[in-house]
Design a protein around this nucleic acid. Structure first.
Lengths: 136, 136, 136, 136
DNA sequence: GTGGTCTAGACCACC
DNA sequence: GTGGTCTAGACCACG
């Protein structure tokens, strides 16, 4: 998993985590039974307090997205979250992109600049992800 | 204008308002020079405290989206007035795009799909804005 | 740091705080990275409501003078970080200078005196800042 | 008299007027017995509500700076306000200039730029003043 | 009528 | 402990 946090967004950090895990589970990026990173590991990776990660996992468990097995870790639960169809996933993403588009307008970023930036940022994250995988 | 609030989203109410006004201005639903609802009126409509709406409007003013004239009201400012340096504007937009990129990964949307979607949504907003202008 | 408030000046308390913090940062009395007093502490010292101090700190953050980290505190930011375009910065400064010019006329200070005074005060501040840095 | 108002300064407009008249009287720019512009005239010149000017004059009268003679106008009162010595006036102005200098620092305006701007703004106001006099 | 400031006191997120 | 948000209600400045 590759998480991205924004500490200045005004959205609580633990909710950002919850949302991202749910999105990954909804798309099938996280498969049933797959383990999540441990609270300690993740909190260190993200430079975040352990309580914050713990709260996110607790929230996910109470929503039935994951299952916590004491001493073993947290795992994606079967059922409940059937993977979304592709157009449903695109629709979810479209909301996030619309948000960026609105900001592009107010920040006076032109079409070409906007699209180029989208490409750059996508590749930047993909690059970080690849490096993270090979470093394992 | 019609605003909708989600009190359980974990996102500050005043920020929800800020985003909705920005979206309305970007789409042409709110035209340059148009007055926003008064703070008192809107706070009553939304069953929210006056200070909360005031904080949203203050934030919009500091972002250059609206102009507020004490004793008269708040008005949508003309676009193309951002006082920020170009690199600062790009940096802010990059944060929003990164947010979308992270979700694209979690939702397993591939690069081409992501970029095509970005293009579509950008053009969709520009189109709506153009239609709103001519329909005036 | 020592702050002083005038409750009868007709100038909003939170703006008096903003100006004093800015002056302290510009003169080197507050050094880069130095923590400001906590909102609660300062509000008690000044016999002012917590929200008033919070508003001042929020304004300072939005002006790029300080950085606030929720749960940790507020810190003076390094200079040279204004995200504004140069013309926007000059325009803002011009407003302040105009204020001084109007007073120069009313106080019957001639052109040469005015300009000499501007030079003196600029150098005086730069000098204090330099001494504060070396005295560290 | 040449007044300068800043509607975004956070200082009440009527107080800005009061302060400027007091400064002019303190320097001798307004002589004892000299008439102030009428409320109606000044409010139109400054694009301000008549009540605002009236409030400023009322405040000045209550402070003993001016005298209102119903049906005739407002006049600078004798005594009470003996003209300040030159260095006292310079000191008052220095406070305003210091304010501008602090803002120059935070707005990253260098010494030369600052001094050039001070010169420009001084000459700009002097120019407006000259034009206003010849147009009479 | 408009927006702006301030208070008093509550709850939340995070360290 | 830190800062952030929200409410309820007061008073002020301006048109």
């Amino acid at each position: 998993m590759q998480f991205g946090l924004n500490f200045k967004s005004g959205i609580a950090v633990y909710l950002q985590l919850v949302e991202q895990v749910k999105a990954a589970a909804a798309s099938g990026a996280l498969q049933t039974g797959e383990p999540l990173p441990s609270i300690r590991t993740l909190s260190e990776d993200l430079r975040v307090n352990r309580n914050t990660v713990a709260k996110a996992y607790a929230e996910l468990e109470s929503q039935g997205v994951i299952e916590t097995i004491a001493g073993k870790g947290c795992f994606v639960r079967a059922g409940g979250t059937s993977p979304l169809r592709k157009d449903a996933r695109r629709k979810r993403l479209a909301e996030k992109i619309d948000d960026a588009v609105v900001h592009a307008h107010h920040l006076q970023i032109e079409r070409d600049d906007f699209l180029k930036l989208a490409e750059q940022r996508y590749d930047a994250l993909a690059g970080r992800r690849a490096r993270a995988l090979t470093a394992e």
